[in-house]
């Protein structure tokens, strides 16, 4: 396979067209050749799977179009912008960096992400932030059912509404919601907003270029009733 290399003296953004260059070649370039501070443009993703996964350097990757499954998964340090919609599992297991989807994201956005920031301008599907482990997710629109299911750490900001069972079996992650949740999951509860919540929200919303008033959000966190086995609960949670 032809190996793509970069002339170190080139300062203009490097461009790939996925209708001309294979997905594997583009991903291999991003893994092997990408250097800190570099900007890469990727055109015509046409719903490709696993685009820009596993990046490890603080570079900028701009994808012009809709992507398929697992885009920007396992990201470390890179700033990935998807100007379009994302398929299932965008930024899945992200460790650090920033992933921005300007359209909507399908199911399991940011699943299991340990760190970094995922910004979705539109809606996110079901199970957004499932098993979240420390990343921050800001959704400009609404999220589907079972979002933040078993989320352990990190924050999920929902500017719109949520489906059923929001925050089911939460651990230490915190949810901020501006609209309505169809229902809260087991052990999730609304809690009083404190100064540190307003400060956190202000910072998260600013980063996502959203101008909502932090005071229009409510906080959801774990009631911690599931932390210990309760035989008297008769499995009724």
């Amino acid at each position: 396979m032809e190996r793509l290399t970069l002339d170190a003296t080139v300062s203009k953004p490097l461009s790939f067209d996925l209708r001309q260059t294979s997905l594997r070649q583009v991903n291999q370039f991003l893994h092997r050749e990408l250097t800190a501070g570099q900007t890469v443009q990727i055109a015509h993703p046409d719903g490709a799977h696993s685009l820009a996964v596993g990046l490890t350097v603080p570079a900028e990757v701009n994808v012009e179009g809709h992507v398929g499954y697992y885009a920007a998964g396992m990201n470390q340090q890179a700033r990935v912008t998807i100007r379009g919609n994302a398929g299932p599992g965008v930024a899945e297991n992200m460790m650090s960096g920033r992933v921005h989807v300007t359209g909507f994201a399908s199911v399991s956005a940011g699943a299991s992400a340990h760190g970094g920031r995922l910004i979705i301008d539109g809606d996110a599907g079901l199970r957004c932030g499932i098993s979240l482990k420390g990343a921050d997710i800001v959704v400009g629109g609404s999220v589907g059912s079972f979002s933040a299911f078993m989320a352990q750490a990190g924050r999920l900001v929902i500017c719109g509404d949520a489906g059923d069972a929001l925050g089911d079996s939460l651990y230490e992650a915190v949810i901020y919601i501006r609209g309505e949740a169809k229902s809260l999951g087991a052990d999730a509860q609304f809690e009083e907003m404190r100064d540190r919540d307003y400060e956190a929200l202000h910072e998260l919303l600013s980063e996502a270029d959203l101008t909502h008033d932090p005071r229009s959000f409510r906080r959801i966190a774990s009631a911690k009733q599931l932390y210990h086995w309760n035989a008297n609960a008769q499995q009724d949670y």
Binding site: D46, G47, H66, N85, G103, F104, S106, S145
Partner: peptide, 22 residues
């Protein structure tokens, strides 16, 4: 099932895209 199957359609860039709700 996926956008990959729609990407070639004429005027797809102007199409209204959405995921059907459960």
């Amino acid at each position: 099932s996926e956008f990959r199957a729609l990407a070639h359609l004429p005027d797809i860039d102007q199409a209204q895209l959405f995921e059907p709700a459960p």
